[in-house]
C-alpha cells in the first residue's frame, strides 16, 4: 500500500526583496498503484513540486504524506528520476543500477545478483558490463529507471524521463514503462510537456497553470488498458487531446 498526499504545499522565493511564487498552495491525492501525470507549460512549478515530494527542498507551507506519515523534507522515501539519465560514467551499467542498494548497505555481490535478472528482463541483457558511454539514449534511460526501481520504493517520480528521446524511441519507452508499471505495481507520478504521452500513459492528468504554478484541472482518462497504437486513435483519446490542447492554449495566451 502506498498513498501519496500533498497537502497545501507551496513554495515562495524572495527575489530582489519581493516574494516570488513558484508554486501556489497545492493539494493532490495519488492513490495506490495509479499512474498520474502532471502537464503544463514550462515554469509551471512542476519541478518545484517534485523536489518537494522527493524531500530535496523545503516547502514554504504544507506537508507531504506517504501512507499518512509525514515525509516533508525527508529524502529517500520515493524513487526519483530526471530527464538526464545521470548514470555515473565511471561505473558499468550493472554497478550504476545497484548504487541505491549499495548506499543502503547491501553488499555489492548480493546487489549485483538482484540486478542481473532485472537488466536481462527489461532490455539491457548483454550491456551489463558496458559503461554508459557505449549505450544509446533510450538504453541509458532504461538503466536509470531500473536503478530507481531497484531502490524499491512504492512511489516513483518521473520528471520528463523521455523528453530528450526521439519520437520512435519514445513510443518504445512508453510501452516499456507501462510494462514495468504493470509488473511492479508501482504508484507513478509523471511530469511531461507532451499531451499524447500524458493521455497514453495515465489514469489521471493534472493540468498546471503558468506562473504562479497551481492546479488548473484534474482529468480522468478512463481509457481501457492494456493500451497500444489503437488507443491513439480512440475517440476518447482524441476528445481528451482536444480538451487538453485548448486548456494549454489558454495558458500560452495568458502567459504572453
Amino acid at each position: 500500500m502506498s498513498e501519496l498526499k500533498i497537502v497545501n504545499c507551496s513554495k515562495y522565493y524572495k527575489k530582489n526583496g519581493e516574494p516570488m511564487c513558484a508554486l501556489e498552495e497545492t493539494d493532490m491525492h495519488v492513490e495506490n498503484g495509479r499512474f498520474v501525470s502532471i502537464i503544463g507549460p514550462s515554469g509551471c512549478g512542476k519541478s518545484t513540486l517534485f523536489n518537494i515530494v522527493a524531500g530535496l527542498i523545503r516547502p514554504s507551507s504544507g506537508e507531504v504524506l506517504l501512507d499518512g506519515k509525514d515525509i516533508t523534507c525527508e529524502s529517500g522515501h520515493v524513487g526519483y528520476m530526471l530527464q538526464k539519465d545521470l548514470l555515473l560514467p565511471w561505473r558499468s551499467i550493472l554497478d550504476n543500477v545497484i548504487i541505491g542498494l549499495e548506499i543502503r548497505g547491501v553488499p555489492k555481490k548480493k546487489a549485483r545478483e538482484r540486478a542481473l535478472p532485472m537488466l536481462k528482463n527489461y532490455g539491457l541483457g548483454g550491456f551489463e558490463y558496458d559503461h554508459p558511454d557505449a549505450l544509446s539514449g533510450g538504453m541509458r534511460q532504461r538503466a536509470g529507471l531500473i536503478r530507481t526501481l531497484l531502490y524499491d520504493q512504492d512511489v516513483i517520480l518521473l520528471d520528463e524521463p523521455f523528453g530528450a528521446l526521439d519520437a520512435q524511441t519514445r513510443m518504445q519507452m512508453q510501452n516499456w514503462l507501462l510494462q514495468i508499471w504493470k509488473d511492479f505495481k508501482k504508484t507513478i507520478l509523471f511530469v511531461t510537456h507532451d499531451i499524447d504521452e500524458a493521455i497514453y500513459l495515465s489514469d489521471e492528468i493534472y493540468v498546471f497553470t503558468h506562473r504562479p504554478g497551481k492546479i488548473k484541472a484534474k482529468i480522468e482518462v478512463e481509457l481501457p488498458r492494456p493500451r497500444n497504437e489503437k488507443t491513439l486513435m480512440d475517440d476518447r483519446f482524441l476528445t481528451l487531446k482536444r480538451e487538453l490542447l485548448l486548456m494549454l492554449g489558454e495558458e500560452r495566451v495568458s502567459s504572453e
Binding site: 530535496l56 529517500g76 520515493v78 524513487g79 528520476m81 530526471l82 530507481t148 531502490y151
Partner: peptide, 8 residues
Amino acid sequence: KMLVSLGA
C-alpha cells in the same frame, strides 16, 4: 540530487 533521492 540523484544520489540523495536514493537515500544517500
